[in-house]
Structure formats: C-alpha cells, structure tokens
Amino acid sequence: MPRVVRARITPNSRKGPLVEILDDGSLQLYVRAAAVEGKANKAALLLLAEHYAVPKSAVRLSAGATSRFKRFEIDD
C-alpha cells in the first residue's frame, strides 16, 4: 500500500530545494524550477524521492497537477 503525502509547492524559490514538515503533517516543498510545462512538478517528485530515500520511480503525483496543493503516492 503506497504512502500518501500531501504537499504545498513553492516554485521559483531561492530557498529550495528544501522540504519542511508543517504542523498538520503535510509538507512544504520549495523548488527552484518554474511552474511551467510541469517543471516544478518534476522537481517536486525528485525532491520527495530524495527526502524519503526511494527511487524516483516510486513517487507518483496522484492529484493536483495544476494546483499548489498536491497529493503524492510513495511506494516503500
């Protein structure tokens, strides 16, 4: 069963790449990539794979492709 992670993405961030855990258990992802042509989504996938120490093929965007708020599934 995959782990479901809720995340808020901040593209074009000078602070990133960085993962912060928020009080409600969701994640705040800061990525340097722009939010055009899925570049920020791809950067978020790579950042989550690194954060959870899983291969990038184990991380999938399941909801929120065009939203700031996204849901990812991560296979353990």
Rank of each mutant, 00 (worst) to 15 (best):
S57Y: 11
L61N: 10
K56W: 02
A58R: 13
Y30Q: 14
L45C: 10
N41H: 02
Q28P: 07
A40H: 14
L61V: 06
N41S: 04
A43M: 02
H51Y: 12
E37T: 09
L47W: 07
H51W: 09
A44K: 01
R32I: 02
K56P: 15
A49C: 04
N41R: 02
E37A: 09
L48E: 13
A44R: 03
Y30M: 11
L27V: 01
K39V: 00
L61C: 10
A53P: 12
L61Q: 15
R60E: 15
E37F: 09
A43Q: 08
S62G: 03
P55H: 15
A58W: 08
G25E: 09
A33L: 05
L45S: 11
L46C: 07
A58D: 15
V59P: 14
K42D: 13
V31F: 03
E50D: 14
A40S: 13
K56E: 15
H51V: 00
D24E: 07
T66K: 12
L48N: 04
K56R: 12
E50T: 05
K56G: 05
S62N: 12
L45G: 06
A49N: 09
D23S: 13
L61Y: 10
S62R: 14
T66L: 08
G25T: 02
L47A: 02
A53C: 13
A63V: 00
G38T: 01
S57H: 11
L45T: 06
L27M: 02
L46P: 10
A40G: 05
P55Y: 00
A34H: 11
G38M: 05
L27F: 03
A63Y: 07
L29K: 05
Q28S: 10
A34R: 06
A34E: 14
A53I: 00
G64P: 14
L48M: 08
A40V: 01
A33Q: 14
T66I: 00
S57P: 12
A49T: 07
L29F: 06
D23E: 14
A40M: 01
K39D: 12
L29W: 04
L61H: 12
E37D: 15
L29T: 04
Q28M: 12
N41L: 02
V31L: 04
Q28W: 08
A53E: 15
Y52P: 10
S62D: 14
V31S: 08
A53N: 15
K56N: 10
A58K: 14
K56Q: 11
S57K: 12
A33Y: 02
A63I: 01
L27R: 03
A43D: 08
D24F: 02
L48R: 09
K42W: 03
L29G: 04
A58T: 13
A40Q: 06
V59N: 13
Y30W: 14
L45V: 09
S62M: 12
Y30C: 08
L45N: 11
E50Q: 12
Q28D: 06
A33E: 15
A65C: 02
L27I: 00
A35E: 10
E37Y: 03
Y52W: 09
V31N: 06
V36F: 07
S26H: 04
A34Q: 12
G64T: 08
L27N: 03
Y52K: 01
Y52A: 02
L29N: 10
A53H: 13
K39P: 07
A63C: 05
L48K: 01
L46S: 13
G38E: 08
